[in-house]
């Protein structure tokens, strides 16, 4: 497929920023700084979705993740943020497990990607970008009708659960 010249540049810029701020998320001491780094990661991922011709998912990512979930996170950080907890040790004793998991998962991914290269390099299907939202809407209401309804039930349960958990006295 013919692709624009700037694609390579933007891909490396966005993915580099995403991974860099991902590292910041898991290393920063202050939860507020970690949350801001996570917001940067999410925005970069939205840019990558745009590059993959998925404008609807990119919009949902920005509105729901950056505008909804991260605001929720920041609110809770304000509620429970302790000066004391930032002076404590930030990492537990399980760094061996962490390094092990990273090495095993990394090896797994590398082996999968080298073995399945032929499968992954299949030609890209062209979707008209202008109809993306329409197509997804049709799919949600035809192929994925039942999961869609289940998702609404899940959200209802989550709302009730969050209120029950966070309320002092029911």
């Amino acid at each position: 497929m013919e692709q624009p010249v700037a694609t390579t540049f933007f891909f490396y810029l966005l993915s580099g920023l995403a991974i860099l701020s991902g590292v910041l998320v898991i290393t920063r001491k202050s939860p507020v700084q970690a949350a801001l780094a996570l917001i940067l990661t999410l925005l970069c991922l939205a840019g990558l979705y745009l590059m993959l011709y998925a404008p609807f998912v990119a919009g949902v990512q920005i509105i729901l993740y950056v505008g909804g979930i991260m605001v929720l996170f920041l609110f809770v950080i304000m509620l429970v943020n302790l000066e004391r907890s930032q002076r404590e040790k930030q990492f537990n004793q399980q760094w061996i497990a962490g390094v092990l998991a990273a090495v095993v998962l990394g090896a797994l991914f590398i082996s999968i990607y080298t073995k399945g290269k032929a499968l992954l390099l299949r030609p890209v299907v062209e979707f008209p970008e202008a109809e993306n939202t329409q197509k997804i809407g049709q799919m949600l209401y035809s192929n994925y009708m039942f999961p869609f309804e289940i998702a609404s039930l899940l959200l209802l349960v989550a709302i009730i659960g969050a209120v029950v958990m966070a309320k002092k006295r029911i």
Binding site: A18, I19, G22, V23, V25, I26, R28, P31, A34, A35, T41, F73, V76, I77, V80, S85, E88, K89, Q90, F91, N92, Q94, W95, A97, G98, V99, A101, A102, L105, G106, F109
Partner: peptide, 18 residues
């Protein structure tokens, strides 16, 4: 890469929010 970073964060951080 992002997945592995997330796994490391879950396994090694102490702060629940992070």
């Amino acid at each position: 890469a992002l997945f592995v970073l997330g796994v490391i964060g879950v396994l090694t951080r102490r702060n629940v929010v992070i």
